[in-house]
Design a binder for these strands. Sequence first.
RNA 1: GUGACUGUAGCUCAAUUGGUUAGAGCACCGGUCUGUGGCACCGGGGGUUGCGGGUUCAAUCCCCGUCAGUCACCCCA
Length: 464
Amino acid sequence: MAGGALPGFRDFYPHEFAQRAHIFRAWREVARRYAFSEYDGPPLEPLDLYTKKSGDEIVGQLYNFKDKGDRDVALRPEMTPTFARMVGARANALRKPVRWFSIPQLFRYERAQRGRLREHFQLNVDIVGEASELADAELLCVAIDIMKELDLGPADVRARVSDRLLLNALLAAIGVASEQVPVVFSVIDKIDRVSAAATEEKLAETGLNPSQIARIVGLTARQTLDSLKREFGTDGALGERFAVLDRYLAHLTALGVDDWIDLDLRIVRGLAYYTGIVFELFDAKGELRAICGGGRYDTLLESLGGANLPALGFGMGDVVLGELLKERGLLTVPEGSGADLFIVGGNGVLQHGIAHALRLASILRDAGLSVDYSLNAEVYQTRASRNQVDSAKKSGARAAIYFDNETDVVVQGLIGKLNDAPKMSFPAVPLLANTPHAVAVLKNWYELNLTGSATGAPSLTPDA
RNA sequence: GUGACUGUAGCUCAAUUGGUUAGAGCACCGGUCUGUGGCACCGGGGGUUGCGGGUUCAAUCCCCGUCAGUCACCCCA
């Protein structure tokens, strides 16, 4: 459609914004439970923050330009360099381990596809200053707990875990030379998207013999540490790495998330900078792109000019996650304003002037309730009250409030069938006099009867 | 950046092998029902058929271009 947002960019109408807010809420809530602190940085950064480490070819995927001061700048395509700079600048002053998270909007100039836009929000969760595998377990547990918070279970989402150091040790045991390792990693990364013949050819090109190739391909099918131990033994560096992973998995079991996890040595992550345990979260059906990916990058902070500190983190975008939630019917949000109370006038209820409604609205708003009403005084006073109730209901208001007679105002719940919804009369005179007790009684009744799941209030789960 | 497919109302879709004024449901707006409806009924606003050319007496339909979307590559922070 002409006149829409730029390609790969999204307009968030209130409905979409509510969906986004639902995801953000889960992110922040779980991060809070794990005692992470939120931070942010600039959306516009010096171009060389990204080219220094990744080389000039990354410019093709950046929104970059010269600003009016002739500086080369770019919209941030990822958070890690900013994070590294911020941590590096205060590395000595920060209490370790650093547990930080952020929800930046990131930009990349490339052709949009499903689950891959030119702009997205990405939860970044990072831990700095702790080399123990317990930190790795904690990090993955955060990602999994977010899935739980969004009502996804281990049948919906799988966490695939690997370890670059283990893979290195296994490849060494197979006889792969260190200069061959990057090629092997790249082949393993693509093994599902490339034919077996092409995989073998690529490996053969690097000088590996058929027996080595067979063992490498065999690695990508292994499911358990035990089978690897049987094949390769537990001596030396390999054995030490097995021990680390055994402890890592034991921690995850103790944290209660072991049924989400699959060992999968195919997960190497495209990025060269990962140095240890890595993981990705996928939908269990394997239809979508990765929901989340991360791992340990113990050398990255130093190479980005920061401190020499061990670190690990993950990124989780809102796009694929949103697709998955929509597919599972877990992203339904209430329509409309969701006002607490909608003041109804018109024939059918006591004819009061609009001033009474405004007075009531003002008092209730001061008490912290959200209040809506017709913004046309003539409509308020003349339109049939039942039509106004209809409008109130459609607007998403939880309850209508109207002057029933000279002495009472009535609060009528609007959720579900009207005759099943809670309804209560309150004395009008003390309310309009803003008597604290009268207002508190109404508010308490509202909160007890019209909020929370017990009343069938709008929830984020589909209607039965 | 490469290739394939698809573009009709806010949404989901119609429209006879190319043929009058492009329709319907939902949504939206207004009204009727003096009171229970997750109604019902009546009415209304909404479209340069993505855009621009071409072929034709005539184009939503055929052709070309362009833009956008989807998918596969590329890339994946």
